[in-house]
């Protein structure tokens, strides 16, 4: 089975980050594989392994021909990659990103499934997978926590507040997976060495037949710090304080 996985390469969330003048994130630094996407990569590798064949192709859009994060996913076991890198895309909004990725996916050849993360760790917009599905005319299944492939279709457990919905969709389809639903494998040393030789097709916007010179319909006017977290409540343990914890969790509808 041939699977396309969208992988975003982002500034290391553990490091310091800067904003550009237009309030978008400064991405002119070393970028790494977004952890959110490592779950999609793992799921794709598992599906390919159970299906007994096919290829996992990575599709990424990043500045400065950045391939560090792509190499990580190739080292995990993906076969090849397509990277769209173009100064014209600096600060692109989610819809433009979806258009670019959709075109890049079309270059990946025949595919049965496209997998993305629910949202990226640096942007948290969360609309790209659904937009791509629309652009490619694919059924869109979001918040997947488990995916099973059957004859010509997929059966997906779609996470909900109460539990999960069971959804069937014909192939090919676009799926977004929830973070943390699988344990992404560590790349092996052989995987790292092999990744250096795997093909990564680096292209620009014009190679995709797109024109983004008109820009996009989004402008960020201001940015504010996230509100500081309110101080927590301290409870002295009098032997009964577990009841307070239970009450707290019940109020939050966690239990």
């Amino acid at each position: 089975m041939n699977i396309v996985v969208l992988v975003k390469q982002i500034p290391d969330p553990a490091g310091p980050s800067e904003l550009e003048d237009d309030y978008t994130l400064d991405r002119n630094c070393k970028l790494i594989l977004d952890e959110s996407d490592s779950y999609g990569v793992e799921i794709a590798l598992q599906l390919r392994e159970t299906s007994g064949g096919g290829e996992v192709t990575l599709v990424s859009m990043a500045p400065n021909k950045e391939v560090s994060g792509i190499r990580t996913a190739l080292a995990m076991g993906a076969e090849k990659a397509i990277l769209v890198t173009d100064d014209a895309l600096s600060g692109a909004d989610a819809l433009t990103t979806a258009k670019v990725l959709a075109k890049a996916i079309e270059r990946a050849g025949d595919y049965d499934l496209v997998i993305g993360a629910t949202e990226s760790t640096d942007g948290y917009v969360g609309t790209v997978p659904a937009a791509i599905a629309e652009l490619l005319g694919l059924p869109s299944v979001t918040f997947a926590k488990k995916i099973e492939v059957q004859e010509g279709k997929i059966v997906v457990q779609r996470q909900t507040e109460a539990g999960y919905d069971l959804i069937e969709a014909p192939l090919p389809a676009m799926i977004s997976v929830t973070a943390g639903v699988v344990e992404p494998r560590y790349p092996s040393f052989k995987g790292i060495m092999a990744a250096k030789k795997k093909p990564c097709d680096i292209i620009g916007v014009s190679d995709l037949g797109l024109d983004v010179s008109a820009g996009w319909g989004q402008e960020i006017l201001s940015v504010e710090d996230a509100p500081a977290r309110a101080a927590g409540e301290k409870i002295e343990d009098d032997g009964e304080s577990y009841l307070k914890i239970v009450e707290f969790l019940e109020n939050k509808k966690i239990i």
Partner: peptide, 10 residues
């Protein structure tokens, strides 16, 4: 990447 992989495991 070797360094990062060993770091992640360790």
């Amino acid at each position: 990447m070797l360094r990062e992989a060993v770091r992640d495991i360790t």
